[in-house]
Every structure is written in structure tokens, then in C-alpha cells.
Computed example of a mutant assay.
Amino acid sequence: MNTHQPRHAAGTTRGVLDRRLLMRGSVAAALAAGLGGVGVVAPAHAATHPLLRLGSRGTAVRELQRKLLDAGYEHMGVDGIYGPSTRGAVMALQRDHRLVVDGICGPNTWAVVDRLAGSGGGGGGETATESSGSHPLLRSGSRGSAVTRLQRTMRANGYWHTGNDGVYGHTTAQAVMAVQKVHGLARDGVCGPNTWAVIDRLNRPRGRTTSGTVMEVDLGRQVVIFVVSGRTRWVLNTSTGKSGWRTPRGRYRIFRQVNRMDYGPLGALWRPKYFNGGIAIHGSGSIPGYPASHGCARVSNAAMNYVWGSGLAPIGRRVWVY
């Protein structure tokens, strides 16, 4: 009895330990398999995508900064220092993609950054091989490499949308419509043969401003052009004043802004920036290919979020309506 009891106890202990280890291994495997896309980061991924926050430095910060610029989130530059400007760009991206807006680049934010940059490959323009590929009819809901090629070409030439993710969403359709307006095509937001022909030879459009920083509202082409230091930074699709409510031509400055939905007698304006009385550039859920507003310059809500986050239209910014 004295010799049997210790052996039995030891065997029981080893069995319990073995079962615990087996259970832990099974749980870990299940988590790795089932939750890998929801925040469980593999060691290799964690090594190249560390948690970044205000004050972080190094090559990972440079990678993040470069990809943010490629995705259209402006900051002071690729210097490897996670300063207030980089944090602001991260917060704008988080806001646009419905993440927790904390300014910290963790696994979920990295996943969006990599997706917008083209699966982590950075934001280069389309290659000759890509240009010679197929040109399928693309419209809202389309997905795939042809959509990514279209998106990359538009962003590289100043037509804003939320990123090169291969999904033909609302802002991609808006960018296509802006291209169509600038080049005198049918304004339907669908990329067919005529639009592809323009995309294949697309260039960055010029505004009328040759120096300085101005927000131009082109009434004839129904686009908003942000000119920075005399060069077109971004072009946005817009819808200005309809008949009886024409947007007045002239030179103005942004003098008031409301960082929320602003309700007025003529409707709701998302995050408006006013430049002429009650006339503003603001976000809207409806930006057709023709003038339809009560005098304002409508852009998509996502575009308006970007205008705020990037600092393109602060109080005092010059506005030229022509």
C-alpha cells in the first residue's frame, strides 16, 4: 500500500498534466485556425507589424507612413517617427473604416492599411503588363484584379477614393464619375469601354490655380479640385446648385465649419465647411452626375471625412467657384 499509493498518485498527476497540455494545445490550435482573421496575429506577422503609437520610431513606422500616403491619408512625411501628423492620418483611416478611433496602429488597423496598399505591396501605378490585360465591364459590386488596376490608376492621377482594395464600392464609383466628367463621357459611374480607353491614358488633371493652395469648384465639369502649391492633389465628384439654386461663381474663403450633421431648412449637411453664406462643401448620400443641390457642393460622406482628416480645407482656405 505504501509503495502503490505514490505510484498511483504520480501516475494520476502525469495523466492530469498530459490531459491539460493536450487541451491547451487543442484550444490554441482552434484559436489559431478559427480566429486568425479576427486579431490573432502570427509571430511572423507580429514581427513586421508591431503595435505602433505616438512616439514609436523605426522601419515599421516608415512602412505605415508610406502605405497611409498610398491610401490617400495625408501626413507630414515618411520620417519613421510616429508623431501627431501620423496619428491623425491613422485616426482618419480608422474613422473611415469603422475601427476604434484611438490613433494606435494595432492588428485591425494594420489589416486595413495592408489591404488598401494592395496586400502590403505599396501603392505603385499600373504596369505595362497590367495595362494590356482584359478590360471587363466594372460597376458597383465588381471585385478582382481589374478593379484594383482601375483604382490604382485613378489614385495615381489624383482621383480620390478610399483605397486600392479590389472592391468597386461607392467611392470608386464616385472617382470613375469624376474621370467621366473631366473627360466629357457619360456620367454613370460604370467603367465600360469608353471609360477604360480614358483610364489607359489617364493623366492628372490641372486646375486653374497655378500657384498657392485653393479649393476649386468647377461648375461646368461638376468636380471639386484641391490644388496644393499649384498642383492638383485630388479631384472629387460633386453635385452643385440645380436650376433656381445655382451655386454663385466667385472667390471666397471658408469661414465656418460644423463637425457633425448640420440640420437646416433645406436638409441635412454632413460636416459642412461654409464659404459663402449658407453655401458649403459637405457630405451627402446623393451625388448624381448633374447639378442637384440647393447651392452647395455635395461630395460623398467618405470624401468629406477625408477632407476633414487631411486638413485640405481649414478655416481661411481660399475657394474659387467658376
Rank of each mutant, 00 (worst) to 15 (best):
A117P: 02
A117L: 02
A117S: 15
G118A: 09
G118W: 01
S119F: 13
E126C: 15
E126G: 14
G133K: 10
P136W: 02
S140I: 12
S140G: 08
R143Y: 11
G144H: 09
S145K: 15
S145L: 15
V147R: 00
L150A: 02
T153W: 06
T153A: 12
M154C: 13
R155L: 14
G158C: 07
W160V: 03
W160T: 06
T162P: 04
G163V: 00
N164G: 10
Y168K: 01
G169H: 04
Q174C: 13
Q174Y: 08
M177E: 12
V179C: 06
K181Q: 12
K181L: 07
V182T: 10
V182F: 08
G184E: 02
G184K: 04
L185M: 09
V190M: 10
C191V: 13
C191P: 03
G192C: 01
P193Y: 07
N194M: 12
W196D: 05
R201G: 14
R201W: 14
R204T: 13
P205E: 02
R206G: 10
T210E: 11
T210R: 13
S211K: 05
M215C: 14
E216Y: 00
V217C: 06
D218C: 01
L219N: 02
G220A: 05
R221N: 04
Q222M: 09
Q222C: 08
V223Q: 00
V224C: 13
I225S: 02
I225M: 08
I225W: 05
V228N: 11
S229F: 09
R233T: 08
T238C: 15
S239Y: 07
S239I: 10
T240D: 01
S243I: 10
G244M: 09
G244D: 13
W245H: 15
T247L: 01
P248C: 03
I254C: 04
I254Y: 00
R256M: 09
Q257N: 11
Q257V: 12
